[in-house]
Design a protein around this nucleic acid. Structure first.
Lengths: 121, 121
DNA sequence: CCGTATCCTCTGGGATACTG
DNA sequence: CAGTATCCCAGAGGATACGG
């Protein structure tokens, strides 16, 4: 914990933001966490195709950038929960808008979104 | 020209969107074009550090994805203008919000990167 | 002015196996 | 359950030079 960031200095706010939420999975993970606190396994199942290595790596980066918090419960079996920080939560409206845009484009191109299932408990 | 897209099928709207506006420069370029029609050289000078190869490549991808249009004026010297499509323009509010978020975070971290007037204490 | 053409480096991300 | 540990590679991005 606690690196804050070692990315190249941002040239502008847009650059700064995309350095933190760019990449293949971060947008989707933040969006999923916008729904509420989630466990590692829940995130893994919601982000289709991600490997445990990548998931852990991306979660640590988001944590280092103070967009999410990680809470460990020392139980058996282990439980680890991830949730948005206030800073992270502040991004959700933007991602919401981007998602709405994406949905419109997908429909316009005749693409049907793959159903996302989550569940059990 | 006119490939639309050959990216892997999007798993959700957020994924779809980030496949199109992700990468190191696309956000900044779209944001700059939100200001109005721009020439190649103007974009190049506004996106610090980008090489002509990368700029052309990224502009072609944005064009293929119908986010911008490219207009060539056969004059001497040559003039090429880029402008947002309606689809591309629909992204600007999202980028505006992301930029505002980024600006807040940069200030919160004491970063002063842009030649941009600001109030502080 | 607006790009192409080469060549090259680096790293984001993947495959697979293992552990507290 | 929630991760680590290795090994590996395609492709994003960079450096440099040239062309209509």
């Amino acid at each position: 914990m606690g690196k804050i960031n070692q990315a190249p200095p941002a040239t502008c706010p847009v650059d700064y933001a995309f350095q933190r939420i760019g990449g293949k999975y971060k947008g989707r993970i933040l969006w999923f966490l916008g729904d509420g606190v989630k466990r590692y396994g829940q995130i893994r199942r919601s982000i289709s195709g991600i490997t445990p290595k990548m998931l852990t790596q991306v979660l640590r980066e988001l944590e280092d950038d103070r967009l999410i918090t990680r809470t460990v419960y020392y139980e058996v079996p282990p439980r680890v929960e991830y949730t948005l920080t206030e800073t992270g939560r502040a991004l959700i409206p933007s991602i919401q808008m981007i998602s709405t845009w994406g949905q419109a484009q997908m429909q316009h191109q005749g693409i049907t979104a793959m159903p996302l299932e989550e569940g059990e408990e």
